[in-house]
Design a protein around this nucleic acid. Structure first.
Lengths: 147, 147
DNA sequence: CAGGATCCCGCTAGATACTG
DNA sequence: CAGTATCTAGCGGGATCCTG
């Protein structure tokens, strides 16, 4: 088929693309924090306040699974577990199991996790500073068609 | 049904959750940069080098649609257009149409876009600094089951 | 050249149920 | 309490065709 050449070109381009992305750390990190819940878990464990404005650092605070589940109300167990697993895997949080009668599992940021949390708070700061501007731009863009 | 109470509780929790998230700029920004291509477009328009290590700032560089398409090889027109639209909407990039024979469309970072780009480069820096550590942690985590 | 419209697939998030 | 296992729906995103 004549159409295959186009498809092939795309495939090739994609290969190259994927290749250089695999090397790019920022891309990998982006994949990481792009996970809807990662930033939120980090924020929670980092003692971050959820409300804008109060940008106090407050040291990292260990939390239990159920605490996190409450804090991130709306998250499914699946997502929470999955997120925590990946964070543990990357060495951003530690997972401690205390063999009490009902098992107790505690999560806590590692040094690495804290440093990332800090970097992300930079983004948060940007957002808090400029987000209203963005909102305004959106409204202007979505403005009534007639002028 | 007895099971409905559980569902309701979840629904309520989700409502609250969504409510406070809507107020949280960092969450909204996350939604923004979570889009697979946003960061890459920003990087391209920001004159960022794709390769790690070379973290030179190099001023923002205007690019045409086709240039961007080439730069982000592998992206579909749909995604590229969609991404550029949302960025334009948020006032992060400008879109200039020059009515030449074949239409010429140029995209460029706005001041706002530049500032976000800068913030994201902070993350990039973190990644370049700590990513190898993360990789190592992963390998350790995925290590052979036997000791 | 830049991008709109459409079809469609795959993945992933979410809900439910079960377990140690 | 802290998960695991399974099923499913929704939609993000890619491919293709078409337009100005």
């Amino acid at each position: 088929m004549a159409t295959r050449t186009a498809a092939q070109k795309r495939a090739e381009a994609k290969m190259e693309y994927d290749a250089f992305l695999a090397e790019c750390p920022s891309r990998q990190l982006l994949d990481r924090i792009s996970d809807k819940w990662v930033a939120l878990v980090l924020a929670a464990l980092g003692g971050d306040d959820v409300y804008p404005g109060s940008d106090r650092a407050g040291g990292p605070v260990p939390m239990r699974y159920s605490e996190l589940a409450r804090r991130l109300a709306g998250v499914s167990q699946k997502m929470l577990t999955q997120t925590l697993r990946s964070l543990e895997r990357d060495g951003l949080v530690t997972r401690s199991v205390t063999p009490t009668v009902p098992v107790t599992v505690t999560y806590e940021l590692t040094g690495l996790g804290i440093s990332l949390h800090r970097a992300i708070r930079g983004i948060k700061l940007w957002a808090e500073t400029h987000m209203d501007e963005v909102i305004a731009n959106r409204e202007r863009y979505d403005a009534p068609p007639e002028g």
